Each structure stands twice: as C-alpha cells, then as structure tokens.
Simulated scan of single mutants.
Amino acid sequence: MKHSPKGVSIHPDPQALVSTTAARLITKLVDVQSRRGEATVVLTGGTVGIATLEAVTANPARTAVDWTKVNFWWGDERFLPAGNPELNSFQARQAMLDPLGVPAARIHAVASADEVDTVEDAAADYARQLAEAGAAEQLATGFSAVDPRLPRFDVLLLGVGPDAHIASLFPETPGVRTVGSTTVAVRDAPKPPPERISLTLESINTAFEVWLGVAGNDKAGAVGLALAGAGEIQVPAAGARGRTKTRWLIDQAAASQLSQRLFDSDEPDAGDED
C-alpha cells in the first residue's frame, strides 16, 4: 500500500496512532482558537480514546492551547453513579482534563445514575444542556448554527467497536435508527453496562470534523466494511461523517482488511470551515 485513501491515515502501531492523533488535535485546537477564540471537542472513551488524551497531556506542545477556552462534551456515556471509574468522563478527567486545568464550566458531562432517576432522564438532561449551550453560542457570536439544538462541534472523536458501533449506537438497534433527537437513551446495549446515553447519528454528523481512532486486528472487519460503503444501520461507523472532514486514524492491524480500490485516490481533504 503506497498511499492512504482519502481521509485515512495509517500508523504502524497503536502508540504511533495515539501520539500522532494527540499532536493533530493540539494543532487543530490552536488553529480554531486563532480564528474563533475558543474551541469545542466531543470526547470518546475506549482504549484509543483515553490513550490519546494521555498523549495530549504528555505532549510539550499542549501549552500552545488555551485550555481554559476549550469546551468538552461526550459522544456517549455509561449510566453509572458519579465517580465510577468506568465512566468516560471520569477517565477523561484523570487522563487530561484535570492535569491540564480545564475549568469545570467547560466540562459538560452527562448526568450520572445518582443525579437522575433513569437513563431516559439523563438523555433528556444532556439534550437540554446541549440546547442551552447552542442557544448561548448563537447569542454570543451571531452566527446561525448547523443545528439550533446543538453547539458547534469543531472536532468529534469516536472509537469503533469490533461490531462497528460508534458512541453507544450499536448495529440494528433503536439507537442507530433514532431521528429527530439530539440524544438517545440506550437500555439494551450488547456490551456492559446495558444502560447508556449517546448522541444520535444526526448530532454526530453536525461536527465539522469527525475523527475515528481505531487500533487492532479485531477492528479490521469493521473498518473494512465502513470504508467500503456499508449501510449505517448494519455498520454504524459507516454513517459518521464530518461536515468538512472525516478522518480515519488507524493502525496497520486495523487497516488489514481495507480494499485495494480505496487506495487509488490520494486527494486532499476538503478545506476547513471558518
């Protein structure tokens, strides 16, 4: 394979993948802040997602970003009590948010199981937070939003499961079929815990850039199907698309089932949107 297909960056191993993704994220945030003053990132959990945050914390270039002016949201969360180490938000705080001194007002976590009664309540509360942030942003900037129910997402990070799920949108489940809502409550996730809160695919696709970080042989089939154009109901990862860029950031193992026809084009990505 002499060239990566459009929007795909292949790295020799997971360590190279996370360090490069971290450097790329820092560069992107510096660029967005230089143009807009502040930036917004949607975080993901998982091995690659959290390792990427740890790599940001360890990167000396992190000081180029004003972390007091970066807003953080999550693509999905597990419905568990506050402080549970399995929470994506708990892991992100340990890996990056606390070490970098991100203000609490910039961290928009999903309500935990001891803050609201049901997973549906948590999803509704998260939708409310998103809508309030979107309205405040429009009032402050005067710019019309992609979706008035949401703030602007500059970069949205995703992992991909062996079954090709993204966030907590699993194949052939009601969550991946949900339309007309910004969030969805999941009660029967096929991996523990079964109760989760997720952005819908509609919300994910309002992001200006969507980055999918994937490592490992067990993800190769999912990556191959998604990049071959499979349907999003069966392969949710195939439905994740940024408005200006969709980046697949993968290691060699995850790339092992990519079709050779994907490597025929080495065109640049679409330009950034201001």
Rank of each mutant, 00 (worst) to 15 (best):
L29N: 07
H108G: 04
Q15W: 03
P151C: 09
L25I: 14
S259W: 00
E115Q: 15
A61C: 08
Q15H: 12
G180C: 13
D269N: 13
D163N: 11
E232A: 15
D251H: 05
T200H: 01
L199S: 03
V210C: 12
R35M: 15
P81W: 06
A270W: 01
I197Q: 02
K2A: 08
G221R: 08
P60K: 13
L157Y: 03
V41C: 07
A122W: 01
I233L: 11
S181D: 15
E120N: 11
G142S: 14
N84E: 12
W248T: 03
K69T: 14
T178V: 14
R35N: 14
F208E: 12
G180N: 10
F153I: 06
V110T: 11
V8E: 03
V32A: 06
A127F: 01
T63F: 09
T44N: 02
A64P: 03
R187A: 13
E232H: 13
V70S: 03
A111W: 07
A238I: 06
I233P: 03
L130S: 03
A64S: 14
V18K: 02
G134C: 12
S34M: 11
A39S: 10
L199K: 07
S89Q: 13
G213L: 14
V116G: 02
N59S: 15
V235T: 13
R149Q: 12
G242S: 08
G216D: 08
H3T: 11
D218K: 10
A39Y: 04
L169K: 00
I50R: 06
L201W: 05
A189S: 15
T68F: 14
N71G: 13
R247T: 13
H108S: 10
T200E: 05
A124F: 00
E172T: 11
E137S: 05
A215V: 03
K28Y: 14
G45E: 03
P14I: 11
A105R: 12
D114T: 00
W211L: 15
N59P: 03
T52L: 07
I50G: 03
I197L: 04
D251M: 09
